[in-house]
Structures are given as structure tokens and as C-alpha cells.
């Protein structure tokens, strides 16, 4: 199925169902799909599971989605930040479940989901609280922890440019989780700074091939 170019972020997030697992790209504000998150707030889906590196900053974007009580559970590597007061409050009030995952394990679990890997053994976290209750195995003299994929119903990512095939290129460190999340969800929505004609992106430079991407929307704000 080819990519759909949406006229605005509201069209891009239409149909997201209550109870969905949403992969949200970005590291800090770099690569954060802020317009898609704002549209998701308007769209109204609730009881969501959000998978993202952080748990919202300040009062906008992911923090605003949390503040509206739409997120039941968050899977992330680094929830606690100087400006994560929305998450902090919900967490201390017991209104949100938290699964903390080491950052590289989070990326690899997403990659595994996109690559059809059933599970994998990683040395990260062996012997720590984050491996408690998980299967372990000694491999080449080192303890490894069994980790399962994280698959999304929807991925919301920010990229730099898309073409009419849905091919994506990113800019600098805003690439972060975009390429792996794009492989790991049933419906992948990208907000981009520019949609260009088919043939206008150098095929050698495409980072996310359009096969992974379902909807793109051009936004004026920084991704």
C-alpha cells in the first residue's frame, strides 16, 4: 500500500484507537513529532501505552498527552528530568504505570519487532534490578538477559524530508529513534519539514525506505 500524504496532522492521526500502543520518536525535542502529538490530543484516543525515550518535557507535546490522562502506561529509558513534572506527578499519584528499559535495549527491542526477531539475549542490565524476573543465559562466559520485541500499533515520528513514495531522510541527531520505530508499528505516521516529488531524494541517502511508512504530513514547525 502506498503512502498517503495527509493535508494536516489531524488527518494523519485519524483512526487511532483507544488502548493502542503508540511509539513516539524523538530524543529531547530533536525528532519529536510535536504536531502529531498535539493532533493525537485533539483526536482523543485514550488508555494508551506510549513507548518513547523520555516521559514528556514541560507542559506541551507528550507531557500534555499525559496531563490529559490519556496514557495508562509508559515504556521509556529516562522518565525523570528537570522538566518532567507532569509525569512525576502522575507517577507519584499512581495514575501511570512505568516500565524502565535501558536505552539501547529499548532501541533493540523495537528493532527486533521490526525485523521479525522473536527475542534476543543481551548483556545489558545483567545482574541489575532491570533484569529481575527475566530469563538469563551464560553465553561465552557472560550473563545475558532475554529481551522481547516491542511492537506498536502506531508510530509517530519526525523526519526531515519525505518523497511521494514515503522514503524518509532525517537531519543530524533528530534521526534517533525514527528509523527503528518506523519498522516496528502497524501504522507509521511521519511529520516532515518538506514533502518532495518522487525522484527528488537521492536513493543512496534514503534512511527509511517508504515500505515502512503509511502516512506523511508536512508541518511548518520544527520537527
Amino acid at each position: 500500500m502506498s503512502v498517503r500524504a495527509c493535508r494536516d496532522p489531524d488527518e494523519a492521526v485519524a483512526g487511532i484507537e483507544d488502548g493502542s500502543t503508540i511509539l513516539v520518536g524523538g530524543f529531547g525535542m530533536a525528532g519529536m513529532p510535536a504536531d502529531l502529538i498535539e493532533a493525537l490530543i485533539r483526536q482523543g484516543a485514550t488508555e494508551l501505552t506510549v513507548v518513547s525515550n523520555n516521559a514528556g518535557n514541560g507542559d506541551t507535546g507528550l507531557a500534555a498527552l499525559l496531563d490529559k490522562g490519556r496514557v495508562r502506561r509508559i515504556v521509556c529509558s529516562f522518565p525523570r528530568q528537570s522538566d518532567s513534572w507532569v509525569f512525576d506527578r502522575l507517577y507519584h499519584e499512581g495514575r501511570i504505570d512505568l516500565e524502565v528499559v535501558p536505552q539501547g535495549t529499548l532501541a533493540e527491542r523495537l528493532r527486533a519487532a521490526g525485523a521479525g526477531i522473536g527475542a534476543f539475549y543481551s548483556p545489558t542490565g545483567a545482574g541489575t534490578l532491570l533484569a529481575e524476573g527475566k530469563e538469563t543465559r551464560e553465553i561465552a562466559g557472560r550473563t545475558h538477559v532475554l529481551e522481547y520485541p516491542i511492537k506498536g500499533d502506531v508510530a509517530l515520528i519526525g523526519a526531515h524530508r519525505a518523497d511521494g513514495m514515503g522514503n524518509l531522510v532525517y537531519r543530524k541527531t533528530a534521526r534517533n529513534f525514527g528509523p527503528v520505530m518506523a519498522t516496528a508499528a502497524t501504522t507509521v505516521v511521519a511529520q516532515v519539514h518538506e514533502i518532495v516529488d518522487i525522484g527528488a531524494l537521492d536513493p543512496e541517502a534514503v534512511v527509511t525506505p517508504g515500505i515502512y511508512v503509511d502516512r506523511v504530513v508536512q508541518v511548518v514547525s520544527a520537527a
Partner: peptide, 27 residues
Amino acid sequence: PDLINAGKIPVTELPGAAYFHHADSFA
């Protein structure tokens, strides 16, 4: 704003820099 370090501080790139996604970075 697209060029930050792991502490989310704006940084610069040197000649010969390379960018890659999170799964590659942790791999």
C-alpha cells in the same frame, strides 16, 4: 535544535562526523 548531545545540550559537528539511529548507536 536537531544537533544535541546525550545530555540534550546543543553541540556542533566536526569534519568527518557521522549520524546514525539509536539501534546502530547502541549496537
